[in-house]
Amino acid sequence: MPTVSRRTVLGTLGGAAALAAAPAPASARAPKPPHGDDLGLLFDSTRCVGCRGCVARCREANALPEDVKLVDGAPYDAPLDLNDRTLTIIKRTGDGPGDAYVKAQCMHCADPACVSVCMLGALHKGERGVVAYDVDRCVGCRYCQVACPFNVPRFQWSSATPRIVKCELCRHRWREGKGAACAEACPRDAVVFGTRAELRAEAHRRLDAEPGRYRGGVYGEREGGGTGVLVLSALPFTALGLPALGPEPVPALGETIQHGIYQGFVAPVALFGALAWVTWRNRRASGGGEEEP
């Protein structure tokens, strides 16, 4: 009775497998390297003394309320981590000698996963390489939080009209001629604001001047395709909570596969055409359109 053989269905499934197959041409994706005039930060953890001036100034510049907790009856601004009102925070790796203070904030990747996955471009690469957020385009799906390898974007869990909260390098202050507030507050040049070219030069100047002070080069020059925030450290970067990333941008594999499958939308359209034709032929062979689905 079947007018189309088992072979046909296997053939169709084969086409389907091709539709969802992993290997895809590398040309499916253009590289998005960082630019020298992108703005960013240099964080030198060996210079940070943990004064948290940057955290306080960041709140001021971005009009964010303190995360106040009562400790021994006294109120403190003591966030545990980046959160829905904290764009940057100073953490400490340990408690002994040789520990380090670590500043966490958005790394402003050159080719960010959060931007790749964001449905309507709420998170996007803005001017001068900043990873910017446009709340009007955000649907609150939180895929950015899932995709970010640095766990940076935060969500306002207790708001009825929540938004994603993350560092945007104080881009609202740029037209006043001001840079990132955190760098402004730093008394020790542990946080420096500038263009990528300047920051790289400064990082290498420090590395060359005191090679014994640092370890592992400049994080963010190559990691994850380059990040706007560069980090210097005396400890392994993983101890600072920075993931060990290769030179490939984080969304590279996913986009290569997805864009390979859907390149020009050829595969889905071809599959659609083949299926429509097979079904139409089957129905004609088995007595026309009498048979309902």
């Binding site: 943990g50 948290r52 955290v55 306080a56 303190e66 106040v68 400790v71 006294a74 109120p75 403190y76 601004d77 003591a78 966030p79 545990l80 981590d81 925070i89 100073i90 953490k91 400490r92 790796t93 203070y101 670590v102 101890a239 600072l240 909570g241």
Partner: peptide
Amino acid sequence: VEVQKPTGPMAYPGISPER
């Protein structure tokens, strides 16, 4: 009086606090 500009105690969160 109330503390209007509080900042944290001299204790820092770890890199990966349990949450």
